[in-house]
Amino acid sequence: MNLNKLILKNQALRRGIIAIIAALLVWEILAHWRLWFGYSLPGIGLMPPPSAVLHLWGKVLLDGSYWLSWYASYSRVLLGFCLAMLLGIPFGLMLAVNRHLHALFFPIFEILRPIPPLAWVPASLIFWPTQEMSIVFVIFLGAFYAIVINVLGGARSIDIRYLRAAQSMGAGQWSLFWRVVLPATLPSIFTGAAVGMGITWEVVVAAEMIAVGGRVYGGGLGFFVWNSFVGGSTEQAIIGMLSIGIAGYLASSLIRYIGYRLMPWHTAA
């Protein structure tokens, strides 16, 4: 059974790698089209070939400022995301468990929720003392809504039979919360976390493009992309884009891994 899983996984891996190589090939050919075939394809503009991008990437990897961009974006994302989890999970659970608090907070929450995080950037730049704090705040907002909505929905849709079973067996409020409500909500918490993490990357990149202007180093991957574009290096802008993709992928893998460790029953079935 384990062997089967391994083979299956490797098959998936192999297919994934093949697909990536194929995509790079097509891109390479398209980028050279004009040079190789003497005419340009309609609707296809200039783009650097992947070979050039990869070549430049090799050099960029040795550049400290590139890694500083990673560090800057990652620390913002993680800080905002962790704050969102720290506040969002208890807040969502509280709304689910307590009718009065739900009636009190939910309307405000629902009015603020449709406002896209990026619309908060100007107000937040004015409100928070540092630019750094305002970026983290917007990231926090992006993840917070997703987490709260999922936690709330998950905790509210707990099968009543679990609660009844636990209460019949003598569970008090404390045990009911920690041993039933929380584990029953964990899958939704992780769904919220995964969605929230996705949003944080969208937000961080946009926020960095808008807000970090002026700073040359440590502006983050969003700034890296914008700065490369302004500086005329499309190759480097693409490197930035792909880096963001990889960074986001690593972040969601981390969440999946933690979810897998915390919910062995969920993946077991």
Binding site: R161, A165, S168, M169, L186, W265, H266, A269
Partner: peptide, 15 residues
């Protein structure tokens, strides 16, 4: 706990 229920469709805690 003097009246224990075995539920329609089952209610073991999956976790």
């Amino acid at each position: 706990p003097d009246r224990m229920v075995v539920f329609q469709n089952g209610a073991l805690f999956p976790w």
